[in-house]
């Protein structure tokens, strides 16, 4: 119905989070929103080949179409290796709170 959609593009660092509000034509994609946000120029470390993107916590490819009020998110890779963390916790004898049986 609406010819333009309002979306947000987010890039979050621990101490600084940038939220850019955009009005884009209907049918725009994740990639177009990220280019339009100007975040790539402001944060040189964003490499779209390596950093994954998504909409509201769901990983989405760069050519995914956007809907009104979507929040496009640019993610950063993990620092911790989940398997290592799990091994460490097992070695320490701690019970995982989730999926660990009791509790």
């Amino acid at each position: 119905m609406a010819e333009s959609i309002n979306v947000e593009v987010v890039y979050a660092l621990p101490q600084r989070q940038e939220i850019i509000r955009l009005t884009l034509p209907e049918g725009s994609t994740v990639q177009q929103a990220i280019f339009a946000s100007g975040l790539l120029q402001r944060f040189g470390e964003i490499d779209l080949d390596k950093c994954k993107t998504g909409i509201f916590g769901k990983l989405s490819k760069a050519d995914t179409g956007l809907r009104d009020r979507d929040r496009v998110e640019i993610y950063r890779p993990l620092i911790a290796d989940p398997k290592e963390v799990r091994k460490q916790r097992a070695a320490e004898g701690k019970v995982m709170k989730k999926g660990g049986g009791e509790e």
Partner: peptide
């Protein structure tokens, strides 16, 4: 309030604002 940015196996970050 959707204040956390992140997805599966990606770094999660809290939007303090």
């Amino acid at each position: 309030v959707d204040a956390i940015v992140g997805a599966a196996k990606q770094m999660h970050t809290i939007v303090a604002r």
